[in-house]
Amino acid sequence: MPEPILQVRDLTVHFYTYAGIVKAIENVSFDVYKGETFALVGETGCGKSVTSRALTQLIESPGRIVNGEVIYHSEKGPIDLLKLSEEEIREIRGNEIAYIFQDPHASLDPLYTVGYQIAEAIEVHGKVKNIKEGIKKAVDILRAVLIPDPEKRVHNYPHELSGGMKQRIVIGTGIANNPRILIADEPTTALDVTVQAQILDLINSLKEKYHATVILITHNLGVVAETADRVAVMYAGKIVEIGSVEQIFKNPLHPYTKGLLKAVPNPMTKIERLEAIPGTVPNLITPPGGCRFHPRCPYVMEVCKKKVPELVEIEDGHFVACHLY
């Protein structure tokens, strides 16, 4: 039995806007095991990023974590991250649980050198005495993320670097404190295709090197097949299916997962022609009752409109939330 490092239970986040309450994610539950790469997939707006940020209370007003538990198995024992005070969670953020954001052009403060920004990440967790010492460490980190000429690059400003280089800096910032969990929120979306593979390789090799657990958020199924061990598929703020990569790609159970896999070239099976899922993503202020996917589902039944399906285990480690099973 693999050992869980993170157990998410019934996580619910609402955004209170003028238009109404946006139920961004509802009752999201999943486990992440030590040392694995766990992928969270789904289309834009399905709540992947909100889920990942809610894990360490990184939800800004007008958003609020309404309900749920995030049990983190730290070296000192399990703690509920959502019950920690602002200062306690700050000590964990960037230290034990670190993030890599989507857009490297926007993630770095344009007015500070990249060395300073990495050094700052180390300094705020008290691992170096001052920024100057941190910059010395930053040189080693730049070397670890394969930036050429690191002694010189630490003194560069973000605008002096390319997108791929900037994302390496962001990754470097993420791993600066040897985190136990690295949450990569669409780390390759804003980059050129040629650079994407390099960045994924880098994340993978760093994961091996530091024995970290990676939570990878992406809408790119190719990336998932390439890097992930287990996958959770999200739709309209809910998890519809969880399983290993083989289970999800070879034996997708949920109609949404099936639709997704038909819409992209499947790396595991041969398909003749790509199909789109009919309909659009629902409005999360007034989500459809019952199963949120029912208006677009080809197998819709009466029960789907009334009852919210629960996640049930169909085969070992393969869960699905669908009335068909």
Binding site: T56, L58, E60, R90, E91, I92, R93, G94, N95, A98, Y99, F101, D103, A106, S107, L108, D109, P110, L111, Y112, E120, A121, V124, H125, V170, T173
Partner: peptide
């Protein structure tokens, strides 16, 4: 409201230091 501010939070930078970044910008 810049993205780098959110990244600073994700780095675990304390509030006052985040304000300093924002003020300089």
């Amino acid at each position: 409201s810049g993205d780098y501010i959110e990244f600073l939070k994700a780095k675990g930078v304390p509030k006052l230091k985040i304000y300093r970044h924002a003020l300089k910008n």
